[in-house]
Design a protein around this nucleic acid. Sequence first.
DNA 1: CATACCCGGGACATAAAACGTCCATCAACT
DNA 2: AGTTGATGGACGTTTTATGTCCCGGGTATG
Lengths: 346, 346
Amino acid sequence: MREIFEIQKKLLPDLMDIMKKRYSILHHILISGVVGRRTLASSLDMTERVLRGEVDFLKELGLLESDATGMKITESGRQLLEDMLPIIKIAFGLTDLEESIAKAYGLSQVIVVPGDSDTSVFTKKELGRAGAAALRKYVSKDDVIAVTGGSTMAQIANNLAISSSMKGSWFVPARGGLGESVDMQANTIASIMAKKTGGKYRLLHVPDHLGEEAYQSLIQDPQIQEVVDAVRSCRIVVHGIGDAMVMARRRKVDADTTRSLQTEGALAEALGYYFDRQGNVVHKMPTVGLRLEDLQRTEVVIGVAGGKSKGEAIASVLRHGQEDVLVTDEAAALEIMKHVKEDIIT
Amino acid sequence: MREIFEIQKKLLPDLMDIMKKRYSILHHILISGVVGRRTLASSLDMTERVLRGEVDFLKELGLLESDATGMKITESGRQLLEDMLPIIKIAFGLTDLEESIAKAYGLSQVIVVPGDSDTSVFTKKELGRAGAAALRKYVSKDDVIAVTGGSTMAQIANNLAISSSMKGSWFVPARGGLGESVDMQANTIASIMAKKTGGKYRLLHVPDHLGEEAYQSLIQDPQIQEVVDAVRSCRIVVHGIGDAMVMARRRKVDADTTRSLQTEGALAEALGYYFDRQGNVVHKMPTVGLRLEDLQRTEVVIGVAGGKSKGEAIASVLRHGQEDVLVTDEAAALEIMKHVKEDIIT
DNA sequence: CATACCCGGGACATAAAACGTCCATCAACT
DNA sequence: AGTTGATGGACGTTTTATGTCCCGGGTATG
C-alpha cells in the first residue's frame, strides 16, 4: 500500500503536497459547515487567490458548492473525504504512529487524526469526530456508557448522531461533580449524548464542596445508589485526559492539595484521578461514581485527548495501563512517542 | 488497492493525466532503446517543446539520460517502469479488462498491455515483451514449447533473453509450412527463440504446395516423424491469432477455398485452423504438426494477439475454448469485451 | 573519408496560466 | 436599515509554459 505512494512520488514528487492541500481544504470546509473564502484562506495559511484556484477546481469536480452564503461540501465530497481517511493516514505516516503507540502500551486500537488541537480548532473538532466514530464502533445494544466532562468530550457529543445501535444505550456520568463549569460537566455531556443518539441517560447530582456529613447521607440515597451501581457496571467508558495542574486550577482545588500534587509529581488527570510520570495514582478527587478498580471489569476504556501540550499527560495515563482505545491527534502522538522511546531506554 | 486510484482520480484527475503522460514517455524510451526528441514527440503525438519540458524533468529525477546520440532510460528508470506496471494497469482500468475477459472465457490468466498494436509499433513491442514474460512465467525445466509464426510471435522472440529456466527447453514449430514469408515462419521463430534463450530447437521442413504423393512420403520420413511426435507431446503452446481473411490472403490460398471460408463465416485463424463467430472450426490448412485435439493434452496454451482489428478474431478463438492464457492489448481487449456482452445477451 | 542526418541544448518571442488586488452585488443577521 | 461577510467578475502583473528556430556536434551510411 505505502509502496504505491513511493512509486507514484517518483514520477510526481509533489503529488503528496497537492493531495494534502486539497484534502485539507475539503476537510476544513466539512468541519466548518459553511465558510467563506477569506476565513478559510487565513485558517489554511494560503493567499485568497490561490485558494480560490483550488476551490474553483474542486467545484468543477463537484466536491463542493457555493452560493452567496459561502462554500459547503457536497455529498460526494463528504463521501470522498470519508474514503480518503485511511489514505491520508498512510500518506502522512499516522498509521505508523498508531501502531507504535498501540504496541508500546498494549492498546487494542489507537486513532490519530492529523494536526494539533492546541493550535487548531479544526483538529479539535476532528478529534471529536474520530472519538464519536470510535464510540460508535464499540457500542452494542443496550450498553451502559460512562462518560466524563471536558471540552474534548463535548466535541464528541457534538459529533454523535442518531443511530439505531445506540438507541437502547444508557449514558451516565462516570463520576459526580468534580468542580467543572456546567456546560463541560459529565452530567451535561451524558445528557447531550443521549439526546443526540436517541439513547437514555441517568445523572449523578452530587454538589461540589459538600460537607462530609451531607456527603455520607447523600450516597446512602437509594436513587443515587442506583445510578452509581449502573455506572460501576458499565461496559464502555469514554473519558478525557488532562494536564494535572491545568485541571487542578480549573477545578479550584485548594492550595494545600495543589502543593501536594506538585511535590508528588502529578502530571495527568483522568476520571478524577491524578497520575505521576510512572502512571501511579497520587491523588483522588472526593466524589462518587466509577472507581479506578472498576475499570478492570469494564470491557472498553476509550481515552480521548489531543494537543501537543497534553502529550506527556496522555503518556502517563497510558503507562497506568487501563486503557484499551486511544483517540488523539498527531501533535500529541508525536509527544507520546518521545516518552515511548525514553521508556524503552530506561 | 484499487480504491486508492478511484479516490485519486476523483481528487487529482489532473495529476493522473500527468502520471500517464510521464509513464508513456518513459515507456516509449524504454521500448525504443535510444531515441531522439523529435522522433519521440511525433510518436507520442506531443509537440516537441512540451515533451522537452517533461524530458528535462525526468532527467533531473535521474530516470533517463541523454547524450549526443539520443535519450535512453537509466537503470532506476527501468526499475521504476517495472514497479509501475501494476499501478498503471489498475489506474487505467486494464485489470478490470483482464479479469472480465478471464472470467467470461474461463482463462487462467489474461494480460492486457496499454495501447493499440494497429496504430502503434510501441504497443506491438510491448505486446512482445508481455508475451515473453508470460512464456517465461509458465516454462519449467526441459519443456517442449511449440510456437507458430507471425509478426507478433517474432516480437516475442525478440524480447526473450538468456534464461537458466529455458536452458534445457526445446523450441519446435507447432505446424509445418503454412505459406508464410520466411522471416515470419514458425521454423524461424522457433530457432530465434532457442538462440535467444540458450535453448535447443528442432525444425519441421515441410515445403508448401507439395503434391499429395510427395507429402505422404515426407511424413513417413523418420526424422520428420520424430519432430512431429515431439510437437504433439509439447507442454506449452504459444501461438498468434489472425484475422481469417487477412491470413488467407497472406498465405495465398486459392480462390475456391477463400470463397468457402467466406460462406462459412470464417473470422479467425490460429495454428492453421480457421474459426467462425461461434468458435467452430470451418477449415484446416493441409500440413503436419500439432492438431487441435492435441491441445487438450497440452498444459499451457498461450494466445498472443493485439490491435483493435483483431479483437473479433480473438473473441472467436476464445469461444472455441482451448486457450489458457491470453496476452493482448487494450484496444483488442475492448473489442473482445463487446463480444462478451453480446454473448451474454444471446 | 565525406556527406547527409539526427541528436541535444541554447535562445527568444509569445501565448497562457497563475496571482494579487480591488470592487460590485447579494444574503443574513443585528 | 445598516453592517458584515460572502461570491464572482475584472484587470494588470508576474511567472510559467509553449512554439519555433538554430547551432555545434556526433553517427551512420555510402
